[in-house]
Design a protein around this nucleic acid. Structure first.
Length: 625
RNA sequence: GCCGGAAUAGCUCAGUCGGUAGAGCAACUGAUUCGUAAUCAGUAGGUCGGCGGUUCAAGUCCGCCUUCCGGCACCA
């Protein structure tokens, strides 16, 4: 059962069609990239080329343009591309020996292609480089391509957006202009993708967050600092309740810690060294002492909870008998995220983390990881989340910035990475490799989710920290009577409230299951005559902590149903003459046309059961009568 | 941070050639008391994101800033 979910349906292992060069779609997209580049060079003569690969739903090409292109130029660019397709240009392949290839690239005045060619030759010891020509357009490229541009449907691609992108993905390099396009084998496939994209926009958490009054931002508070509105706070609170229950069962102990700490703490842990740029700047405080001197101190907003938890661990002597020791907190942390990274709830400057730190011995690491993985599995099962992949995030000793990014301890890296890989193999979990994705203090296991708009985001994480406990002087007395340094496992199954709620809003399209829904039941009267009956139902439900409310009464029934539906309220109770007389309610569930009339007590107990079980359905199916 | 685009009522948006702002929904008031996705009428709501410039005159043109959106880089 655990495996079935965690194997992620084999997604990580299958090579998708779009990234398999042998597939027709890959050839079409790759060839279209060349066609677009040809058209761009027609419109902006003298522009130079970057890369132009096929991607998941189409392709892009990077350029240094002589004159900017914007989306207003798309119609003309598309026209020119279609004209090229119609010409039936044949793709000719050519292998040029190194010197000829260099001469060709210089003649083409393509300095970036030349730079890449030199790197290819040096790294891979190539003796020749591959070029493709179609019509007047020549590109250094591995292929493969279609036979002629006539093999590409003229109505199955669509220019999508223009964006900036650094050459070779390095922010020290020049910024190029990237043009993205959708491309498919035929028009129906394109239409489907474009339509799916438009539907996805409707589920965007930023849009639904505003429409459903879940959260807001205000310039007077600051960028990336979410204000959770009452309805959004309900969702946070429900998730927090879930986390508390799961953690209680798993033997975690809850703690609470301040939002700030002295700057010196972060110097000691190494966070300042690695993440200074992403921390809010220090607060200087000065205290006058009676003798006229002053005490100066620096405080910082905490960018993570671990040092605080470490200090709880360090508050007294620890024995190996206490390990694993599990400390949990929904801690709020502050990070100075780059201005361009801030986006809705997905990337914020104040994060509420479902954080916990598990202190353990080396021998316990595997069991701790197994335990944490099964906690993740349980949380995802409850929420119905299935579309994710697992990434084993390792350090990258070859990274030129490696020394700045990671603790320099090759043996520790090798040992800890092997432990995690073994756990995954033992549990038969499929995972991707993530070289260079580790934390500075150790390898981690990240759970990657695809958002409704197609972005892949790291959501949950389990991290094995072999470095900071030692730096900060944590220890325990082992069964040998000697002092040892514990390992620390950092974990956050529910991620942060911010990113997790963003995911759930999009996952449920704003129509939350009853247990999570800000308003669980709305009672609608047929006319004001039934106000007292309806109010009685609301009062009774609220007395049982059900989030029930009465609809505004001056509207028509139709209007009230429309309003409640727009607000995506999961359960509507319609009451009129019949119901008031019989002590019944007519239940109308969100998205379900069929209704059922039942005694209120029956509805009430079905509702309570649905909420208690955290069912993904809105309420249990109405009893058949 | 970088490249590009955008910002008009709470929301979605219109605003022509530069001549001092408009709709629908929401809100509020009143009437209506209604049986399954918008009852009717009325009222109010704006320093057109901010600052500066050009002009007799700026929502409109120009500059800077802020914020948002699409990407890139970053992401403990």
């Amino acid at each position: 059962m655990l495996h079935a979910t965690w194997r992620g349906k084999g997604k990580a292992m299958r090579i998708p069609e779009e990234s398999n060069p042998d597939q027709r779609l890959y050839r079409i997209r790759h060839s279209l990239a060349h066609v677009m580049a040809q058209a761009v060079l027609e419109m902006r003569e003298g522009s130079t080329l970057g890369f132009g690969p096929p991607i998941e739903d189409g392709f892009y090409y990077d350029f240094i343009l002589t004159e900017p292109l914007t989306e207003t130029d798309f119609p003309e660019l598309e026209r020119r591309m279609k004209r090229i397709l119609k010409k039936g240009q044949r793709f000719y392949h050519e292998e040029l020996p190194i010197e000829d290839a260099y001469a060709r690239l210089d003649e083409m005045r393509e300095p970036y292609k030349r730079e890449y060619a030199e790197e290819l030759i040096e790294k891979n010891g190539l003796e020749a480089l591959s070029f493709y020509r179609n019509g007047p357009f020549l590109d250094m490229c591995e292929g493969p391509h279609v036979e002629t541009t006539r093999d590409i449907a003229r109505d199955a691609f669509k220019l999508r957006s223009v964006a900036g992108a650094y050459w070779r993905g390095d922010s020290n390099n020049v910024m190029m202009t990237r043009i993205y396009a959708w491309a498919f084998a035929d028009k129906p496939a394109l239409d489907e993708a474009v339509e799916a994209h438009e539907l996805a926009q409707e589920r965007d958490h930023k849009k639904l967050g505003r429409e459903l009054d879940l959260f807001t931002f205000d310039d007077a508070i600051g960028r990336g600092l979410p204000l959770w509105m009452p309805h959004g706070t309900v969702i946070r609170d429900e998730l927090e309740k879930l986390a508390i229950e799961l953690e209680f069962k798993a033997g975690y102990q809850r703690v609470a810690t301040p939002h700030i700490a002295k700057g010196s703490l972060y110097r000691q842990t190494g966070h300042l060294e690695h993440y200074k740029e992403a921390m809010y700047p220090p607060m200087e405080v000065v205290e006058e002492t009676p003798d006229g001197s002053s005490i100066r101190e620096t405080y910082m907003l905490k960018p993570m909870n671990c040092p605080h938890h470490h200090k709880i661990y360090a508050a007294r002597l620890r024995s190996y008998r206490e390990l694993p020791l599990r400390l949990a907190e929904y801690g709020q942390v502050y990070r100075w995220e780059a201005s361009g990274a801030v986006s809705g709830l997905a990337r914020v400057r104040m994060l509420s983390m479902n954080d916990a730190h598990i202190y353990c011995t080396e021998a316990q690491i595997k069991d701790v990881f197994r335990e944490v993985i099964s906690e993740y599995d349980e949380a995802y099962r409850i929420l119905g989340l299935e579309d994710y992949t697992i990434r084993l995030s390792r350090w990258d000793p070859d990274d030129p910035k490696g020394r700045e990014k990671y603790v320099d301890a090759p043996d520790d890296w090798a040992r800890t990475e092997a432990i995690i890989a073994e756990v995954l193999d033992d549990m038969d979990v499929d995972y991707e490799e993530g070289p260079g994705e580790a934390a500075f203090y150790g390898p981690k296991l990240d759970v990657m989710f695809r958002t409704i708009t197609g972005k892949v985001e790291q959501l949950s994480t389990v991290q094995l920290d072999f470095a900071v406990p030692g730096r900060i002087g944590l220890k325990y007395i082992g069964d040998d009577g000697a002092e040892h340094v514990p390992y620390c496992v950092h974990r956050a199954p529910l991620s942060t409230h911010e990113r997790f709620v963003a995911l759930l809003i999009e996952h449920f399209g704003g129509a939350f299951p009853t247990w999570l829904a800000p308003v669980q039941v709305r009672v609608i009267t047929v006319s004001e005559h039934f106000h007292d009956y309806a109010q009685g139902l609301v009062d009774r439900m609220r007395a049982n902590f059900v989030r029930a409310e009465l609809a505004s009464e001056s509207d028509t029934v139709s209007k009230k149903i429309r309003d409640a539906t727009t607000r995506k309220i999961p359960n509507l109770l319609i009451v009129g003459e019949r119901e008031a007389t019989d002590g019944t309610v007519t239940l109308r569930r969100y998205g379900v046309k069929q209704q059922a009339t039942m005694p209120f007590s029956e509805f009430e107990s079905a509702l309570a059961e649905t909420i208690r079980r955290r069912s993904l359905a809105f309420v249990a199916d109405p009893p058949s009568r």
